[in-house]
Amino acid sequence: MSAMADKIMKRVRAKGRGWVFTPKHFIDFGTRGSVDMALSRLAQASEIRRIGRGLYDYPQLHDKLGALTPDAEMIAQAVSAQSGDRLAPSAAAAANRFGLSTQVPARSSYATTGRTRVRNAAGRSVTLKHSRAPVLGNASDAANGVVQLLASLGRNKVDANAIAHLSVRLDDKDLAALLKGRPVMPGWMGDVVLRLNAHRRGSIGAVRGGKNSPERLS
């Protein structure tokens, strides 16, 4: 194994099985050509698996089934890294996550700052849809999911019940990211974030003070 391939495998193993990656994940090791060549040789040696154009994974293994299909989110993250775009949960996925919908999205779909496209990898199809709403940098999936969900609902459907429901399902770090991201949001959405923060602070204060919450939770 070459020195380049050895360095690549050391990083791959550190990430663990199931990781999906692109040549860009190793560009700090040398030229793009040398990275591509090392990845190709590692795939030929079955150390890693090529699952699509410019996409590889370190597959999880099953005793009877062998190499398993990579996780859809891992593929989406790798595709985003490949193009340099930001990624966020879809509005439908966020609604399900926060308990505002019981419907589980049938297809693996994500919001992206890049163009809308579908990528197929190892038999799995992943859809990335261009988002008109901002995708916040250095923010959790929960925070970005809220942005996508609010954009989908629209200003007229974000009522007190929705505010109460969402605020108790976000932690301080999520709210801090949303507050920091207000300048890139539409004005009405930034106002909703202020309401989310106020409701959460009021709820925490009520619990600590032994009083009733200022709004009824759904």
Rank of each mutant, 00 (worst) to 15 (best):
G187L: 14
S40F: 04
M1N: 13
G210Y: 00
D159P: 13
S83G: 10
G33T: 07
R201T: 10
A142Q: 08
G16N: 06
G154T: 02
G210E: 06
A206V: 00
M74I: 04
A133T: 05
L196I: 06
V35A: 05
S90K: 04
V147A: 14
I75W: 03
L65I: 03
A92F: 08
R13N: 12
R86S: 14
L55F: 03
I48N: 03
F21Q: 03
A164L: 07
N161M: 08
R32N: 10
F21A: 08
G99Y: 09
S83E: 10
Q103K: 13
R182M: 00
I204W: 06
G205D: 12
R132A: 14
V207R: 08
L150I: 04
S131V: 14
E215M: 14
P214G: 04
S101W: 07
A78Q: 00
A38W: 02
F98K: 03
Q44Y: 03
R124L: 15
R32F: 14
K15L: 08
G84E: 09
Q103C: 10
R182E: 00
L100V: 09
V12H: 07
S101P: 11
G30S: 01
G66V: 11
V158N: 02
G145P: 12
V135S: 11
Y56C: 03
G190N: 05
G99P: 01
T116C: 12
L179H: 10
L149T: 07
Q148E: 12
R50P: 05
